[in-house]
């Protein structure tokens, strides 16, 4: 039995969830469903531009620019936390410090960074909703971001509640590498939104 009591050794809730989500995602991607949903979201994106966030973002370029800069700064915080945590998992940094210590504290910084990134990100999205709706790179970024949030809170954190010695070392390395690449992708596709629209 696990210490938290939520999962017994015989339940496979998380594994099944991952499988179901993968199935839904694949169905979504390779059927007409994706296109239909995209069409229906157009109204929503037009509405986003009329919200206070959208109006402010479109009216005052200076506000938009400063929010963008805060978005970047929060991204640095998020990225710093990801790098420190993953580097510890890979054994690159702080191997003399207990992993629990690094991972828990880095996660707290991560949550602060993510919160600010999300709030400023929603603000920016409202200001340019009519533009980003048409950019594939925006939708890839959203998919990567959603995957990242799911991965961190549903997969990575619960796994790391185990003592690190009890986790198979290859699994530890695997989650560290996929996490770094995933957040890199979120940041890189985010930057490309700016280029793709011009």
């Amino acid at each position: 039995m696990s210490a938290l009591g939520s999962t017994s050794s015989t339940s496979y809730g998380k594994t099944i969830t991952v499988a179901v989500l993968l199935f839904i995602l694949l169905t979504f991607s390779f059927t007409d469903l994706r296109y239909q949903t995209w069409l229906r979201l157009y109204e929503f994106f037009l509405w986003l531009e009329t919200t206070p966030f959208g109006v402010i973002g479109k009216t005052w370029g200076a506000v938009f620019a400063v929010v963008e800069a805060i978005h970047l700064l929060a991204m640095a915080l998020l990225g710093g936390a990801v790098i420190v945590g993953d580097a510890r998992l890979l054994g690159w940094l702080f191997i003399d410090v207990p992993a629990r210590e690094i991972l828990d504290k880095a996660h707290k910084v991560f949550v602060v960074g993510l919160t600010v990134v999300l709030i400023t990100g929603i603000f920016m999205a409202c200001g340019v909703a009519g533009k980003i709706y048409w950019l594939p790179v925006f939708w890839y970024k959203m998919l990567a971001l959603a995957t990242g949030i799911f991965f961190v809170f549903f997969i990575r954190r619960p796994l790391l509640r185990h003592p690190l010695e009890e986790i198979h070392p290859r699994v530890t390395k695997l989650i560290a590498i996929s996490s770094m690449l995933l957040w890199f992708t979120v940041a890189a596709t985010g930057r490309w939104i700016g280029f793709a629209g011009s």
């Binding site: 991204m75 640095a76 710093g80 702080f94 410090v97 690094i102 504290k105 880095a106 940041a187 930057r191």
Partner: peptide
């Protein structure tokens, strides 16, 4: 994107000095 590496590390150091990040290290 390198901002994440450079300022990410710098913020961690600064926040440690202020007692917000990794206080026990």
């Amino acid at each position: 994107l390198t901002l994440v590496v450079c300022l990410g590390m710098l913020f961690m150091i600064d926040l440690r000095m202020l007692g917000y990040a990794l206080p026990n290290v």
